[in-house]
Structures are given as C-alpha cells and as structure tokens.
C-alpha cells in the first residue's frame, strides 16, 4: 500500500489521466460547440473549433414550438422535434415506472420463495437479456400491427420497452434483494404483516440504490432506442432518435441544428451520469464482479 501511494505522485500518471479525460469528453465538447455555431461558422474552415461567436438560434429552431416566445431567428417553425421531445419524455418515464414496479416484484419472488417453475423462469429471464432489438424488429412489427392493433400508439412502444428491460431489471435487483437481511422480513411477518406489506414497506426502502441503478438503465434504453420506435411509432408518437435519423438522410446536413438536437437528447443521460455515477457503476459491474 505505502509503496504504491509513494510512486503514484508521479506527474506522468496525471498527464495520462488528463489525456483520457480530454479524449472521452472531446467529441461531446465538439458537439456542444457546434450546436452554438451558425451554419456559416460550421462551414468556414478559418473559424476554429472552439473560438467563434456563439448563438442560440439552433436551439430556437429546434424548440420553436415549445418556447414561450416566437424566436426572431426562425422563419418557419417545424414542430416535429418539440413534439418528439414530449413523446420521448412520456414514453421513457412511463416505461421506466412500469418496468421497475413489475421487475422488483418478480425479482423478490425469485430470490425469497422456493416454488415450482422457479428454475425455468429465472433461466429464461437470463437468456432473454441477450435478445437484441434487431431480432425483435420483424415479429414486433407484425404482431403489433396485425394482432394487437398497437402500431402507432404509446401503449405499443411502452409495452416493448417494458418487456425489453424487464430481464435486466429483474437480474440486477435480485443481487440487491439477496443482501437484505432476512431477519428484518421475519420480524415484520411476526408483527402480522402480509407478504405484500413486507415487500413494499420493508424490502423496497432498503434496496433504493438498486432501484436507482435499474431506473437509470431502463430510462436510458427507452430514451435512446431507435429501431423499434422507428418501426412502431406513428407520425404523432415519434421519438427524438427517430426524428434525428429522419433528418440526416438528406445529403445536405445542417450541422448546427442537428448537433443542438443531439445535445438535447444527450442532456438527461449526462445529468444522470454526474448525479448518480456510483449507482451506474454498481449497475454495470453487478454480476461481472462479485462482492
């Protein structure tokens, strides 16, 4: 220990760390800078990447229909993005809430009860974790359109996101529930609490960090997902990733506006990262690193 801490004051390690931080942040910073540039500045090679006169007109153009004022810089207001932003927020929040409630109940049952079918259920859940969205594309399109009649609805997209995230949420919450001291639950049972009261009043408050990690991961997937949303959403239920892809198929890209859109899509995950990096790391390492 002491040997290591003496060596570590070497400036070379700090140089390496700064280098890594610049590399990780660089592309994001470049996107941020570009989102404040006019189209002229983006295309002018003489203008440096980080030295220019910033403007918020790209953000005004993107958010024109949800702003409280009519921006002077926007001649024609395209409401696509403003609406998509609302859709994304609604879909991500609702699917996260449902996934968490359903997922933690299932995880509790798998950890605390011995019953018939427990093995197969937990095994299937584990396998389902690996199913990529691309594999679900064809069947979900077919079933949602022809059988459930849910294409183009919020319910349809939320249903997919809940199902897609459940395996992971169940899996990660199991590792938190195992650590809850069983004596607490037994004491509550002695006092006459039924299983549901034990679960909601005793277990849930203890596994709050696990719930936070699970919530962030679920929100992130629902917020970032493109493929299934693209296949299922209609004109009025489209999410932000879909509108971004739709707007870059054209040859001539308005980089300033698209980077502003990208920044808006990146903001929630960035905030989560800075607020709850500990929970996120727990979530990432759970399962791979024991203890």
């Amino acid at each position: 220990m002491s040997v290591q801490s003496n060596k570590s004051s070497s400036p070379a390690f700090y140089a390496l760390m700064v280098c890594l931080i610049v590399m990780a942040m660089g592309p994001i910073m470049l996107m941020l800078a570009t989102s404040f540039k006019t189209n002229v500045d983006v295309n002018d090679v003489a203008v440096g990447s980080f030295f220019f006169t910033p403007t918020i007109r790209n953000y005004e153009a993107v958010l024109c229909n949800v702003l409280w004022y009519a921006p002077a810089s926007v001649d024609y207001c395209d409401p696509t993005f403003g609406r998509a932003l609302g859709n994304s927020i609604f879909i991500a929040l609702v699917s996260t809430a449902i996934t968490l409630v359903v997922g933690c109940m299932a995880a509790y049952a798998l950890v605390r009860f011995r019953f018939m079918g427990r093995g197969p259920i937990s095994m299937t859940t584990l396998l389902m974790r690996m199913v990529p969205p691309a594999v679900l594309l064809v069947p979900v399109f077919g079933i949602w359109t022809f059988q459930y009649g849910l294409d183009g609805t919020y319910t349809g997209i939320i249903l997919v996101y809940v199902a897609m995230n459940l395996p992971f949420v169940i899996w990660i919450l199991q590792s938190f529930i195992v650590q809850v001291p069983i004596q607490l639950e037994e004491a509550a049972k002695m006092d006459g609490a039924n299983p549901f009261q034990v679960f909601f009043l005793v277990v849930l408050p203890i596994i709050k960090p696990g719930l936070a990690a699970a919530a962030i991961f679920t929100f992130r997937i629902a917020w970032n997902e493109f493929l299934l949303s693209n296949a299922l959403s209609g004109r009025s239920t489209r999410t932000v990733p879909v509108t971004i892809v739709n707007s870059i198929t054209e040859y001539d890209i308005d980089w300033g506006v698209i980077m502003a859109t990208g920044m808006l899509l990146a903001i929630p995950p960035v905030i989560f990262t800075f607020v709850a990096s500990k929970q996120i790391i727990t979530g990432m390492t759970a399962g791979a690193v024991k203890g």
Binding site: A24, P27, W223, F226, I244, A266, V270, T273, M284
Partner: peptide
Amino acid sequence: LRTIFILPMMIAPIVVGLMWRY
C-alpha cells in the same frame, strides 16, 4: 475520471454516430 468515462456509454448511440460523422 470514472464518471467522465461513463458518459460515452450513456449517450444515445444515435448521438454517438452523429458526433463521429461530424
């Protein structure tokens, strides 16, 4: 460093593609 290192993984793949394309 660890916190900043999580950023690339948290941001939407669509946005990551966008940044690199630029």
